[in-house]
Amino acid sequence: MKIDLSGKLAIVSGSTAGIGLGIGKALALSGATVVIIGRAAAKVDEAIAAIKRDVPDAQLRGVVADLGTADGAQRLFEAEPRADILVNNLGIFNEVDFFDTPDEEWTRFYEVNVISGVRLSRHYVNDMVANKWGRVIFVSSESGVAIPANMINYGTTKAANLAVSHGLAKRLAGTGVTVNAILPGPTFTDGVEEMLKDAIAESGRSAREEADHFVRRARPSSIIQRAAEVDEVANLVAYLASPLSSATTGAALRVDGGVVDSLAI
């Protein structure tokens, strides 16, 4: 089985770091031309250079835009009006108690984690339908199924990702365009390392060791008993973005290390 995305153009939101950067690399490695997007030009340049180090012949383009806003989305549409593959990865998270989360924080999370993907899908899918082929992938989370008590606003937006992706898949029935969501579990990214920085300083463990300790403590149902690597998540996206996944749509596919203790999602 060979994943070949030659000739395909992929838009990956939130792709200058973490899972998004890993997805960009996986798609480029499979032959796609990948658009890397971030809010800062320096970060976009750094991400492109990082992928080029691992994939020297990668076909990459960069766009500087804040996709958490309508203006930022329009800037992307003007720079890249069409796509064959859309990965709605942009997302923010933090640990905050429900009673300490004001309205504006709920709104910010919803705009970035949900509406950004709605805007991009609304724009790019029409061209996919006209071409009778396309792939839309929402990066949700196991937190969208098992809402964490300390990240309720985040979990709620990730549940919304699942609802949008499933509904859009049904809306596009018979068009040749598939829509799916993936549910990563705790993944070893710069963002997770930043979240755990106080625990790292207190314990004296390495960042990787602390991330794995966090999984065993905060997600004890994890079967792999560690944080996933970014590439382990990105590989699933590369498959879903490929022609090989043509009979998979409307699905929520777990790459959570077994955190969700259920036969189904």
Results as ranks from 00 to 15, higher is better:
28 A>M: 05
32 A>G: 05
26 A>C: 09
116 S>K: 06
68 G>N: 06
27 L>K: 08
28 A>P: 09
22 G>E: 02
45 D>M: 07
83 A>G: 03
117 G>S: 01
48 I>D: 09
102 P>L: 03
95 E>C: 00
37 I>R: 06
102 P>D: 15
53 R>Q: 13
58 A>L: 09
114 V>T: 15
27 L>D: 01
63 V>M: 04
44 V>L: 14
157 T>P: 13
52 K>A: 12
42 A>M: 13
140 S>K: 02
56 P>H: 12
151 M>G: 00
83 A>I: 07
96 V>D: 06
30 S>M: 07
151 M>H: 07
131 N>T: 09
31 G>N: 00
91 G>W: 05
22 G>Y: 07
46 E>K: 07
156 T>C: 08
93 F>R: 13
23 I>C: 04
78 E>S: 11
146 A>H: 03
39 R>M: 02
99 F>W: 07
123 H>V: 09
30 S>Y: 06
133 W>Y: 04
94 N>Q: 15
129 V>P: 04
48 I>Q: 11
52 K>D: 00
62 G>H: 04
160 A>M: 07
142 E>C: 12
73 A>R: 03
124 Y>M: 00
29 L>H: 10
32 A>R: 00
129 V>E: 09
100 D>W: 00
47 A>T: 06
37 I>P: 02
69 T>M: 05
101 T>P: 11
115 I>M: 15
84 D>N: 15
81 P>M: 08
60 L>A: 05
51 I>K: 12
102 P>V: 08
37 I>Q: 06
34 V>I: 05
41 A>P: 09
117 G>C: 10
121 S>P: 02
24 G>A: 08
120 L>V: 06
78 E>M: 11
144 G>Q: 03
142 E>T: 03
135 R>I: 04
88 N>Y: 07
79 A>P: 08
147 I>N: 02
72 G>P: 13
43 K>T: 14
135 R>H: 00
126 N>W: 04
77 F>M: 02
54 D>V: 06
102 P>W: 06
161 N>W: 01
107 T>F: 12
30 S>R: 11
129 V>A: 12
28 A>F: 04
66 D>I: 13
144 G>A: 05
101 T>Y: 05
92 I>P: 09
88 N>D: 12
158 K>R: 10
51 I>P: 04
144 G>F: 14
